[in-house]
Amino acid sequence: MTLLRVEHLSKSFGPSSAIENLSFAISPGTIHSIIGPNGAGKTTLFNLISGLYRPTSGTIWFDDADITALPPHRRARCGLSRTFQNLQVFLNLSALDNVMVGYHLACDGRFLPSLLRLPSVVRRDRDYREQAVALMRFVGLEAFVDAAADAMPYGALKRLELARALAVQPKMLLLDEPAAGLNPKETAELDFLIQQIAAQGITVVLVEHDMRLVWSVSNHILVLDHGRKLAEGTGWEIRHNEDVVAAYLGEGGRHR
């Protein structure tokens, strides 16, 4: 069983290629980490999977459907959701409304019912607003429910992106460096949070430089280098893979 399958995927920007002939699969219900040095192509891979970039060649299968040509909003509908390495919070909205946008697909997005504020729209909005508050509590943002997004600290914005991504009610959640810029305590909380999310049956794909977090949560690890697959396997296999150690992990098995 696979949830995501990537076949012979390539992406080049002009002459340089960021992803080169990459194939791998992710089975549902796992926490899957993708690691690699800066510029290895991890974010590019996420952008390809989520549809922000079109691949130069190759195919992407999600849930047994070929999604290579689907625009991003259709992929969200298929059950893909993500956070961003460079935060993409809606700074012009309140924190709660950021999460409410996450429920966009569940709400009634048609024009006329919204224009007339039909009772059904109002009711559904109210229900999801409650769920959004619950989600904010789940990620530890209960203090920011009424805050404006542009008045929140960096760490809180990262959690806000996570809450918004969860509101999409995805089958697969892509997290791009969620621990970057967090202190050890916050990272420990994130560790716990990721495991809880996975326990709900959401497949988590994690791009991360914080190796302690990676070793702690991952069932499976993919190592990228220069857009190519360097190795793949369990944490133990990766730690003992000579190529990986030589190219990326270095002595001590810790990077950065």
């Binding site: 989520s50 549809g51 922000l52 625009p71 991003p72 909003h73 992929r75 969200a76 509908r77 893909l80 959701s81 993500r82 961003f84 993409q88 919070v89 809606f90 700074l91 012009n92 909205l93 409304d97 409410m100 946008v101 996450g102 966009h104 697909l105 709400c107 009634d108 997005g109 048609r110 024009f111 019912p113 919204s114 224009l115 504020r117 729209v121 909005d125 992106e161 918004r164 991504a165 509101a167 999409v168």
Partner: peptide
């Protein structure tokens, strides 16, 4: 309304809006 939030989301970040299904 959901439509208004979607519009403002497009303003805030088109990429993020698209990936919430907008």
């Amino acid at each position: 309304s959901p439509v208004g939030r979607a519009l403002q989301a497009v303003h805030g970040s088109e990429s993020a809006a698209a990936l919430t299904g907008v």
